[in-house]
Nucleic acid binder design. Structure first.
Lengths: 219, 219
DNA sequence: CCGCATCCGGGGCGATACTG
DNA sequence: CAGTATCGCCCCGGATGCGG
């Protein structure tokens, strides 16, 4: 929580966000919306509970997070982003987009994977090539974690969970599935890496990002 | 340097960039281009010399920084960004842009200000409203630090230093000058805050950003 | 000088236990 | 459920030394 003591906007931003876990807390709040303490802990495996409490206080003091007392039936406290906190969306997107290039070696030993993190990649990389086509729904499962991707009217959305009657289902090891969704692996290479595609293949191809240039791929 | 152990692109990015000073080192390399160790130290007041050496090694291992042996006459080692490191430009811009909102209270006690940091604000906030007008040159001095802003053919550029025959000169306390350049303060309020404008006022107004909405201003 | 390595004190961080 | 309390450890800050 020590300041860099530089009158520079980046240094000021890091005075608020630079401590360990802070930006991941903002990630959780952006992905989940206003959340309970316990749900935040679940989305931040490895965080010490005192650190989460400390960081939430600091973010509150900086005007990034606001504490809301939930209405009657639940009666718990919710932590949500203020408008200033919502303003971090672009910065987190840019950082996460840069980080995609660091995921091509697959998960390391003991790396955790949660479904709602996968939805970030949809938002970062995928887009509908046929915005006026009929709505499509795709389920993507990496390991045991699955998300549902909806495209309707050119708008893509994704959320954790499973679908009743998706147009297609993608499943496979995390590297193949996330590599496909992030555009790091073209469909053929992802299939070679263990990805299985069942259902309407063209509905998947319609949403896939342009693969990264050949030089960026795994050697 | 401890990993978050999450297979998420943001967590991966922070595994590389999340340590203290790391993103400020990238800032210096983006602003200065390939730099000597000593010049980096000068742009990072407060950093311990062993930490700078550690961070440069870690960034090198992550493929963000490359060490170049300088050619014959100088014979020193230069640290520069790799293409992967250059890819951080958007993320740093987004973070720095968010941090502008934290600068409206002016420099804190003992805050340092260096001219080349000010050039970031030009890049982030200013644009030429008359891209086809004749080229303009403006000098802006905050305290003792001064930069030169050039606009030619709609392209804005800024660098540290002073100008021989600028069209206008801005000078004043850091809060007024940086508030103006970043769009946090309209010209009238900046002048009320101690800013002096000599020379062609319209050449300054031509480059100023739209001021932030009234709600964002200092009360 | 330039580019570090070494040493040491203090505090941020990680892990676990505990509580209203 | 939403934290507080405690205890090591290691990261960080600051100073100094040192080879090329």
């Amino acid at each position: 929580v020590r300041s860099y003591r530089q009158y520079c906007s980046l240094a000021r931003a890091l005075d608020v966000l630079g401590d360990r876990w802070t930006l991941l807390i903002v990630r959780e709040l952006l992905l989940r919306g206003p959340s309970r303490y316990t749900d935040l802990r679940a989305g931040l495996p490895g965080i010490a509970t005192n650190l989460l409490a400390d960081r939430l206080r600091e973010l509150e003091a900086a005007g990034v997070v606001a504490r809301e007392e939930a209405p009657a039936p639940v009666a718990t406290t919710l932590f949500g982003l203020t408008p200033r906190g919502e303003g971090l969306k672009d910065a987190l997107r840019a950082l996460a987009s840069w980080g995609i290039g660091l995921m091509v070696d697959g998960p390391h030993a003991d790396d955790e994977l949660q479904a709602h993190w996968m939805t970030m990649l949809v938002d970062l990389s995928m887009h509908d090539r046929e915005p006026h086509g009929r709505p499509v729904q795709i389920e993507a499962r990496a390991g045991e974690e699955s998300i549902v991707i909806d495209s309707s009217g050119g708008e893509l959305s994704a959320h954790a969970g499973t679908a009743e009657h998706p147009d297609a289902v993608l499943a496979g090891p995390p590297l193949a599935v996330l590599g496909l969704l992030s555009g790091q692996l073209p469909l053929e290479l992802a299939e070679a890496g263990g990805l299985s595609l069942t259902g309407a293949r063209e509905s998947v191809e319609r949403l896939l990002p342009e693969p990264a240039s050949a030089g960026d791929l795994v050697q």
